[in-house]
């Protein structure tokens, strides 16, 4: 009885992980090299970047919004961390905090305009994305980025105790995100607002501030992901965050977080991030063209939102 209740409550979550596992198992049988320790590490590093962006995206989507500015927040962070102060190890002591403060600030601007001035999230964050893109292109005059510092490369590519640094960082942030969502006041307020912001307001919750900070948080995780991405790739270039825009939203959708807001779980987005990278790996392993990958992305997102919609209908 109790197990059944728990299963029902976490049905979305379980499905997301099953899907990721199933995909993984199928391809491992077909291509034995796929499941090698090294390849799994590569997949995990890929997932970590998507997963970190998806943290803030999950928060924002729980409020019923969306953040379409993560693409160029990531690019800005990556370009800056490789160029500020020559991009060396020493410069990172001040450049990393500076970058994160800046991306949080951009996020807060998004959030303030959306919450206090009632701008539609799609337009506001899209506009921010275009402004950041335009600003970065204007400042750099379209010049390519630079190489990442040694320290960044270690964080992005190397392992500690046999586990990639990226996974350690992702794990830490996952714990933080879960604590925020389910053990702290902020999480309760977030879910209440996503379900019914009027009730939240009547309950004495500072609705606008909570919404604003969810975008600020998204800025933080996007900035962090950008810094780490530069290390993982080894260099930075304009537009390097573009793919992550879709991937982060897709991870949230696949993870069963409702696009209407009000319900969701970051652990689902984690499964979503894995699903996306496994899919990417499969298509690469099978030597399928890029077009198939793109289509598969679309289909899997459509499939998961359709499944979620059907479940809502059934439970009614």
């Amino acid at each position: 009885m109790k197990g059944n209740v728990i299963f029902k409550k976490h049905q979305n979550l379980i499905f997301s992980y099953l899907a990721a596992l199933l995909l993984f198992a199928a391809i491992s049988v077909y291509k034995p090299g796929f499941a090698s320790v090294n390849h799994i590490k590569v997949l995990a590093q890929e997932s970590a970047i998507i997963g970190i962006v998806a943290i803030g995206q999950t928060f924002v989507i729980i409020t019923g919004g969306i953040d379409l500015s993560v693409a160029w927040m990531i690019s800005i962070a990556a370009i800056m961390v490789t160029r500020l102060g020559g991009g060396g190890n020493e410069a990172m002591i001040w450049s990393v905090p500076l970058i994160l403060v800046m991306t949080v600030f951009f996020g807060l601007v998004n959030g303030a305009c959306i919450a206090y001035l009632r701008m539609p999230p799609i337009v506001m964050t899209l506009g921010m994305n275009i402004i950041l893109q335009g600003g970065l292109v204007a400042v750099t005059q379209g010049a390519p980025g630079s190489y990442a510092s040694d320290l960044l490369v270690v964080l992005g590519q190397k392992a500690f105790l046999g586990i990639p640094w990226l996974l350690w960082i992702w794990g830490l942030f996952t714990v933080l995100a879960m604590l925020l969502l389910f053990r702290m006041k902020y999480g309760r307020e977030l879910f209440a607002i996503g379900n019914n912001s009027v009730v939240a307001n009547y309950s004495g919750i500072n609705v606008n501030a909570v919404i604003m900070w969810s975008y600020g948080f998204s800025g933080l995780t996007a900035g962090l992901a950008g810094i780490l991405l530069a290390g993982k790739v080894g260099s930075s270039y304009l537009g390097m965050g573009d793919a992550l825009q879709f991937q982060s939203i897709a991870a949230v959708a696949i993870g069963g977080t409702s696009m209407m807001g009000g319900s969701g779980n970051y652990l689902g987005s984690v499964a979503g991030a894995f699903t996306i990278t496994i899919l990417l790996g499969i298509l690469a392993a099978l030597n399928l063209p890029y077009g198939v990958q793109k289509m598969a992305y679309g289909l899997i997102v459509l499939g998961s939102v359709l499944m979620a919609a059907r479940k809502i209908k059934n439970s009614r």
Binding site: R188, A192, A200, S203, I205, G262
Partner: peptide, 19 residues
């Protein structure tokens, strides 16, 4: 519309104003 979040549990609702 104003009193309770219908999609959440009794527990979550009762403490919502007094977190």
């Amino acid at each position: 519309l104003q009193g309770v979040v219908l999609a959440q549990s009794i527990r979550e609702n009762i403490v919502l104003s007094s977190l």
